[in-house]
Design a protein around this nucleic acid. Structure first.
Lengths: 341, 341
DNA sequence: CTGAAAGCGCTTACAG
DNA sequence: CTGAAAGCGCTTACAG
């Protein structure tokens, strides 16, 4: 069992179009035609014979050869800040599913929201002849936007949008508005915001939709109560501490991600504040986790998996020569005990 | 700006070895040699000239052609149950980093711990000429193990091991032991276990190391207090509820994942039990989250990122013709407020 | 050190 | 409907 123990196995001779053709006594082009998705210019009988033989021999088309010949790799690349962010892993899940369904495979790369890493990963993927990109790490700064112009293949932004670019997002302005209306309805007037990364359209729009709605209702949120950062737990901890240090009387905090909201809750707990009696907390994304927290978290369902599948479908349409438009999915507020006891 | 809005850009003519050779007035084989990682049989001067031209023209090697010619794709495949499990995304992060460092790219696929999905994804990756596999979704059942024998390429198990197979894991027996010793030291004698998936070596070994240690100390854990399930939050919620229903007097619960531990905490909270005064809770993996929970979670650091990098390095050694051995990393207990107030 | 040639496995016009 | 041929871009023995 040596072969098993060292993780390798004897490699059996490769089955190719040529070997099948030889065995069947036909030309390799006939075999190729018979094995194409929608066989054309071959008799039904030949198709059947060839496919049976292919199946029997365990034929597996060599994608490298096909790619070299056709210029299409049936591979796409995806960039995200970090896959350990469950929200981003969810979007990838959707992309992956839609990819497989269409006969594609997706490379996914962690870029840590750094322009240099993204540049490197995009280059590597381009060298691998990807047919397109799903970019879920768009940044509203020059370097990041400039990179898009260098891409020589179709691409779609996912989750985070940019003005004038093809994208599939959730309507984050509406999401922020839903949260504001909910908190206003509960009587909150002194509210803090853990804004997340304001260079990501998600953080920016969720915050803006939220603040605009409060503003329309005549509720002011002073600048120092809107703290930018990242979307992780630590950022929530620190931003909340900052808000509560300058404004101990806030009655509610809105975080633009569930992870940050968990950090906010930790800070409140450390300070001995009860949730939601002393301070209400709202998150964003409605991860599975939100429901199961010690204090279940009110959050906005941002349909992350759907964002992924739709982004991939849009990309496929683009690759196929179509002209799809941008898509904005409707978010939905899910109310739980962190705002309503 | 039409080109930008629809996500595509005019495709400039491809730079190939042939086009560079023409431009430089040398043979394509010379260009190929000059551009190889460790140029051999070319003058230093030629290397310099060629590389300058390549850089200047923005040459990018066509991986499909190289793969077709050499039979190596510099691509590996990885399977995980689900990337939305932060623990698994962490392992992927390590694999990804080590891959890139070595000039490789990794495909990662969600298999949901289902043999049929895994079979399908492995086949697809095989068709893409992957040079090897990192398998992080091994199951101790026949179907899953049998599949490994069909793989015609080098492969390494990561995180979850199987007897007699090459693997890179954390020593889960020791991890379980560390938890047991900790709880014993705190005086706990009535303890429940949220065992997770017992078909995964992680869940099985962590539970076994834990129970064996208690047994050696003369502490019995009746079967009904050891509840199998998955590694997610929901499983933690349900398993804890089951334990507490049959045995309301337990003073500690060990969950084999942090996610499940969070579920356990939620259940305790719903029942009005204080953590750790009434019931102590221990998790596993030491995710970033553990530290920031309302009650910081005692957990075992399982060095997930390292498992990923080491698994990839082991695979590369195997691909390179070496005979690496299995690796078992040392876990470390991180004590926090969920066991010690 | 450099060149000329073969060939990896596939798809696809072009004949017949 | 089937065959024969060309060629995608690369690497690598084989000459010189």
């Amino acid at each position: 069992m040596q072969g098993k123990q060292d993780g390798t196995l004897r490699r059996s001779p490769t089955v190719t179009l040529a070997s099948l053709a030889r065995e069947l006594g036909v030309n390799v082009s006939t075999v190729s035609r018979a094995l194409s998705e929608r066989p054309t210019g071959v008799s039904a009988a030949t198709v059947a014979t060839v496919r049976r033989a292919a199946e029997q021999r365990g034929y597996r088309r060599n994608l490298a050869a096909r790619t070299l010949r056709t210029g299409r790799s049936f591979t796409v690349g995806m960039t995200v800040a970090r896959l350990t962010d469950v929200a981003l892993a969810s979007v990838y899940g959707g992309v992956d599913e839609a990819s497989i369904h269409a006969g594609y495979t997706t490379f996914v790369a962690n870029t840590l929201d750094r322009a240099d890493l993204r540049r490197r990963r995009l280059d590597l993927m381009l060298g691998r002849q990807v047919d397109g990109f799903v970019l879920a790490d768009s940044h509203l700064d020059g370097a990041a936007i400039g990179q898009l112009d260098d891409l020589r293949v179709p691409h779609v932004l996912a989750l985070r949008g940019l003005p004038g670019r093809l994208s599939v997002t959730t309507d984050d302005l509406v999401g922020g508005r839903l949260v504001a209306e909910h908190l206003l309805g509960l009587g909150h007037r002194r509210i803090g915001v853990v804004a997340g990364d304001v260079l990501a359209s998600t953080g920016e729009q969720r915050t803006r939709g939220f603040l605009d709605t409060l503003d329309e209702a005549g509720v002011d949120v002073p600048q120092h109560r809107v703290v930018p950062g990242l979307f992780d737990v630590r950022s929530g901890v620190e931003s909340a501490a900052q808000i509560l240090a300058t404004d101990p009387d806030v009655t509610a905090i809105f975080a633009t991600s569930d992870a940050a909201a968990i950090g906010v809750m930790a800070t409140l707990r450390d300070l001995g504040r009860r949730i939601p009696e002393d301070v209400a907390v709202v998150g964003y994304n409605n991860l599975d986790l939100a429901e199961a927290l010690p204090v279940p978290l009110t959050s906005v369902d941002s349909r992350l998996f759907d964002v992924g599948t739709q982004a991939m479908r849009t990309l496929l349409e683009l690759i196929g020569g179509g002209s799809p438009g941008s898509l904005s999915l409707e978010p939905r507020l899910v109310v739980r005990a962190s705002t309503v006891p």
